[in-house]
Each structure stands twice: as C-alpha cells, then as structure tokens.
Amino acid sequence: MKTKITWCLAIISIMILSACSDSETLKGDTEVQPAVQASTVNYQQKVNQDVKRFREFFASKFPNIELEEFVNGAYAIDAATREQWLEIEEFPPYEIPVEEGQEFFEAPFANGKTYADCFENGGIGIRQNFPYFDEKTNQVITLELAINQCREANGEQPLDYGQGELASISAYMANESRDNVFDIKVNSEAAYKAYMAGKQFFYSKRGQLNFACADCHLKISGSLLRADILSPAIGHPTGMPVYRSNWGELGTIGHRYRECNKNVRAEPLDYQSESYRNLEFYQTVMSNGLVVNGPSSRK
C-alpha cells in the first residue's frame, strides 16, 4: 500500500514539475510547414522540379521502361504478368460498367438536365483536367466530387463514392478521354498548400505496420510482396477507376486508397476527405505528361 502511494505521488510530482517547466502538451493537430512566404514565388516551377525528380527516380530504377509505359502499373515492369493482363484486356471486364456509365451519364435528372450540363465540353474528353484546385472554394475538386456536386446542384441525392453507379460514370468519362494528356496546374499559394499536404501524406508512415505510400510504391516498387509486384507510384491515377479482379468490380481511386490504408492497418479516411483529395492531387501532378488510360483492369 505504501509503495503504491509513493508511486502515485512520484508520478504526479513528475507530471506537475514537467508541466510547470514547459506548457507544451500533446497537440491535436499536425503543424503544416509554411512552404513559402512571398507571393512572387513560381509555384508551378517548384512543382515541376518535384515532377522531374520523381520521374528521374523511376527512370533510374527501371532503366528499360519508357515513361509512357508507367500508366500500366505493375504490368509496365513485369513481362510475365503483362501477358496475362494483355489477354484480359482483349475482353476487358470494365466494358459493361462503361456502357452502364454512359446510360447513367445520359439519363436526365428529375429537372430535365443532365451531367453534360455541369461539365465543360458536355463532359466529354475532360478527364485529364481532374483533379484541379478550385481557387473559389479553396479546395481540390476530383472528378468524383464534381459528379456528386452536379447531382446535388440538380436536386439529386449524391451517390456512393467507392463502387457502383458513380464509379461507372467516372469510367465512362475516363473512357471518352483516353490518350488525353494530364497537365494539372499548381498556380497559387493555396493550390501549393494542398499539393504539399498531399505530398506529406504520401511520404508519411502510418498504421500498425508503419508504411508510407512511398515505402511500397516508390522506394521498393517493383519488388515482390508475397506474389504481388508493387506498382510504381508514377502513373497510379491515370488508369482510374480500376476493375480489380479481387474486388470483382470497378472501384474509384478513393476505394483503392482506403484498401491500401487497411493493408497497413491504418484506419481508412472517409471517401473524398480533404487528405485523400490532396493525395490524389499530388499523385496526379506527379503523373503529369502521361495519358488517361482509365478505366483499367488490375489483378
């Protein structure tokens, strides 16, 4: 009993002492590094340097692979699985979802309008412009978010973000944009902040297994995890949405992010959470110069 009291007292006194010496305690938020101060900074230039370094990393890791091949994920770098994949692509499993997506896309809302009324060029051939940073609302707008915003603006209920109708619409829109080149801009301080937040997410270790996106998909990309080849991060967003045979259906990039987080035993974030949108923004910027090849099929 005596030792118990002494133990308690000792700890309490240490706590009080250290609290007195410094008032800093566990904070509820991470500190975002102030990236830049002056308004004259050329953000696009800074970002382009990142893109260059990113590309150079993969170019030296996979010296025999052409840049444009990276849109094909692990199949870009592995001849054996590539053969099987090419066979699957002859009768692609996303064909039916794309057709359904077109029907959904063209079906008028209750008010008589359609998705085409919400998007530039009637929504055709525009996939490469997403995600973009919207200076008015000060946030990253992904294609999936824009689809649901369109619905809500027309008095319709938003769709589920992971799989199903929305993924099919996204697949149709990607399919109509194939071979268009991504060129996502980062032109303002606010856009750069979102970009940097996405970048920080990409390089931060999380979950019980303590993995960052970059650990598997940059540092050790190309090596085997059990029987699976870790895909290089460059080109990740170009083929979205993706039909994964282990899902047995089409899913959005958000669905894949959540799955990845679960794999490292980190609690997944909400679909279209600010962090996931920023991550998609960063990843797509890193894939600038590559073409839209979504929807795609993967193991």
């Binding site: 566990l26 370094r53 931060s204 270790k205 019980q208 960052a212 650990d215 540092k219």
Partner: peptide, 23 residues
C-alpha cells in the same frame, strides 16, 4: 498504447516525412 504510437507516428511524420523523397 496503440493510440500513443499513433501520436508518435504523427509527430515523427510531421518532422521527417521528407526523408522518403527521391533525392
């Protein structure tokens, strides 16, 4: 304990995330 390791990860990441960047 798991939440505390999460705090440590958050703290570590906020200071060291750039170490994973290609040089």
């Amino acid at each position: 304990a798991q939440t505390e390791y999460g705090f440590i990860q958050a703290e570590y990441a906020s200071k060291n995330w750039q170490e994973g960047e290609p040089k």
